[in-house]
Design a protein around this nucleic acid. Structure first.
Lengths: 211, 211
DNA sequence: TGCCTGCCTTGATCCATATCAAATGGAAAA
DNA sequence: TTTTCCATTTGATATGGATCAAGGCAGGCA
């Protein structure tokens, strides 16, 4: 009923439309959900982090391309017994509901980004999201220096943000010029003043937690 | 525990950030979920149709502006007893999970629209979605003439699509010029060949149902 | 009847981002 | 070391949609 599968960075986990007789959750690593149009235009529509869930009870085919962004381990359950478990163990669907609601909120924030933010705001928002996520393993990001490695290529960033990779590169350079970010290497990013980055996101930051 | 509330077209149901001690579902009419930025930029992030659900178990404040698009009746439940019911009746959270997963799929399709489609494709997609929804009350839209009344103003369409209202108006005119749509009046829309409209959406239409 | 008052359309112009093209740099392979 | 291969940066130019600015049209109200 339950088994593990490993993928290398860059490998495709499943293609949109493929038969999918399991559901799965991420054990370690990061994966992406992407939609592709016939002419090749691509939009990333989800980011799967450890503990996140893929696949839908009661659906036989994958709705998105799933790709390993880093080396990835997934824990898979055959669909039939999993659905059985959902019926017998009420907590499972409650927990799944919680997680899905979180994803829906994230998707809606992302919609605002895609529909209304400028290229610069999009980049700043993405960096802030990643920084916060990485920091959610303990330390508070809001004060002092933050640094992290970017798992995404410029092209993947552009797929996430609905931009071209050239625009991503130019805006990264602009943020560097302005001192909002420091590029220790192409992938290693330091943020000297996290608040300064937040100010570039276009988001309301009055509502921030003050604790 | 349960009560009904009515709203007139255009009325605000609740503002983002307001205290919200109930959850609700739409009985009749249409409502929108919108995010607003400090400088007034707006993005619609959800459309609530009859049977759709608003509010989140375990959250005290509204995350979005909710506005009645048409005259609207909602059925509200106080949050505490509703959460109690979720624990005692497992089917409730299963059903809620189903609905939330549908909304998540819709949100992701919407993300693709916002991030990667042209203005013309966005308009065609919106019209196709509305036509299909209106038609889901029985008849098959794919063949023959389809017609419906548009509940949205041009400005609301622009909030939905991440465009300006002028661009919406221009693209509507362009689709009219090309014969893809016919405007019986400003709000009454006829689609002589539904397939022709679908071809303008940019979506894959090979995968269409053939039944 | 005529005049508001909201929508909506259309035109002119601008600008942010896309597109096309080339150069740079760094890391793995030879 | 040199070569090759990508990812990235940077430059030049094009363009789709935004912005600014008038009008037009229909329905409600005086």
């Amino acid at each position: 009923m339950k088994y593990y599968r490993s993928f290398e960075a860059g490998q495709t986990v499943i293609w949109s439309g493929d038969k999918m007789d399991f559901v799965a959750s991420v054990v370690s690593g990061v994966a992406t959900l992407t939609k592709t149009m016939e002419d090749g235009r691509r939009q990333m529509v989800g980011l799967l982090l450890p503990s996140d869930f893929v696949g839908r009870p009661g659906r036989a085919h994958a709705a998105y391309d799933v790709t390993a962004l880093t080396d990835l381990v997934m824990c898979c359950f055959r669909k039939a017994p999993f659905e059985e478990m959902m019926n017998t163990t009420p907590h499972v669907s409650q927990r799944l509901l919680e997680m899905t609601l979180d994803e829906l909120d994230a998707a809606r924030e992302w919609m605002q980004l895609l529909g209304r933010k400028t290229a610069r705001e999009k980049i700043a928002s993405l960096l802030a999201i990643i920084a916060r996520r990485d920091a959610s393993l303990g330390l508070r990001p809001a004060k002092g220096k933050v640094a992290f490695d970017l798992a995404l290529t410029r092209e993947q960033m552009s797929d996430y943000l609905g931009l071209t990779l050239e625009t991503v590169s130019r805006q990264m350079s602009a943020l560097k010029r302005d001192g909002t970010i420091v590029l220790a290497s192409k992938r290693r990013i330091e943020i000297p003043h996290f608040d300064a980055l937040l100010a570039e996101t276009g988001d309301d930051n009055d509502g921030g937690v003050l604790t």
